[in-house]
C-alpha cells in the first residue's frame, strides 16, 4: 500500500444475497491520481474501503507490496495501513466531541508511533507544520466542532498529511460544502498531490470537483466499472446513460469536466 501498485483481481463484495461490488481487474499504479465517480449507491465507497482493507471481499484478492490484504493478519494489515491518509464521509467521524483542532491533527501521528509510546515533540512539530501549511494556524486551539464544514475538511486533510501518507483516500470530501469550499478543498488536494506525488483515490459523486491533476476516472454503477480512463474522454453519453439512466453529456469549463443534462446550456444548473 505504501508507494506500490494496488491490484484488485476478481473481487466480489456480497454482504447478503446482492453483489454490491464486482471488479474483475483493477490496477492503481503508485503516484496516480484516480477519481472514483458514479451515482449514489453505485459502490464507490465500498471500492475505496476494499482498497483500504476495511471491507473484506467474499472472494478475490487486493494485492499491494506483494501481500494480499484479504489474507494478511490484522497486525500486519495495521502496519500496511500506516501510510494511508483516509478521509471518511461526515457520518463516519464524531464531530461533536470537543477535541481541539491540534488534537485532531495529532491523531495522524497515532499509528506512526508504536503502542504504549506517547507522541514526541518531533510529532508535534510535524502536526504544527501541517496546521500552518493548510492555513489553520489561527484555529489551532479551537475545537473541531466549532469549525466550518470547509475548515473541518482541511483539518482532516492536515491530519492525514501528518501521517506522511503514501496513499491519500478521500470519500466525498467536497460533499455538503459550498461552491467556494468545494474548489478550495479540490485545489488543496491537487496542490498536495503535486508536492508529494503520493497516490490519491478521490471518491466523489460530483465530477466537477475532481482537480485537473486527476487524469483518470473510474465510473462505477451498480457495483461494476462502466468506464475507466481519461476523465474528459471516457464519459460518453452512452456510458452516462447506463450509469445515471438519463440523457447526459460532459462539458469542460476551464480545466475541469462537468456532467450536465444533454440539450442544456452550461450556464444553467443541473451539473454533476
Amino acid at each position: 500500500m505504501s508507494g506500490s501498485t494496488l491490484v484488485l483481481s476478481e473481487v466480489r463484495v456480497r454482504p447478503g444475497r446482492r453483489t454490491v461490488l464486482q471488479i474483475d481487474r483493477l490496477e492503481i499504479p503508485a503516484g496516480a491520481f484516480v477519481g472514483i465517480i458514479g451515482p449514489n449507491g453505485a459502490g464507490k465507497t465500498t471500492l475505496l474501503k476494499v482498497c483500504a482493507g476495511l471491507i473484506r471481499p467474499r472472494s478475490g484478492s487486493v494485492v499491494t507490496e506483494g501481500l494480499d490484504l484479504t489474507r494478511v493478519s490484522a497486525w500486519r494489515k495495521c502496519e500496511l495501513r500506516r501510510h494511508i491518509g483516509y478521509i471518511p464521509q461526515v457520518a463516519e467521524y464524531n464531530a461533536d466531541l470537543p477535541f481541539t483542532l491540534r488534537e485532531v491533527v495529532a491523531m495522524g501521528r497515532a499509528s506512526i508511533r508504536p503502542l504504549l509510546r506517547a507522541l514526541t515533540p518531533e510529532d508535534f512539530e510535524i502536526v504544527d507544520h501541517w496546521i500552518e501549511a493548510l492555513g489553520l494556524g489561527r484555529r489551532r486551539g479551537q475545537t473541531f466542532r466549532s469549525l466550518s464544514g470547509g475548515e473541518q475538511q482541511k483539518a482532516l486533510i492536515a491530519r492525514a498529511m501528518a501521517q506522511d501518507p503514501r496513499v491519500l483516500m478521500l470519500d466525498e470530501a467536497c460533499a455538503n460544502l459550498d461552491f467556494h469550499w468545494k474548489h478550495e478543498i479540490s485545489d488543496l488536494v491537487e496542490q498536495l498531490y503535486r508536492q508529494t506525488q503520493m497516490t490519491v483515490l478521490m471518491v466523489s459523486h460530483e465530477v466537477g470537483v475532481l482537480p485537473p491533476a486527476c487524469t483518470r476516472a473510474i465510473l462505477i454503477a451498480a457495483g461494476r466499472v462502466l468506464a475507466d480512463g481519461v476523465v474528459g474522454q471516457v464519459l460518453s453519453p452512452e456510458v452516462l446513460q447506463r450509469a445515471y439512466h438519463a440523457d447526459l453529456t460532459t462539458v469542460t469549463l476551464g480545466e475541469r469536466t462537468h456532467i450536465i443534462r444533454a440539450q442544456q446550456d452550461t450556464g444553467a444548473g443541473g451539473r454533476f
Partner: peptide, 9 residues
C-alpha cells in the same frame, strides 16, 4: 473508521 483505515490497532 479512521482508526482502522490508518493503521491504529
Amino acid at each position: 473508521t479512521i482508526a482502522a483505515a490508518t493503521g491504529v490497532h
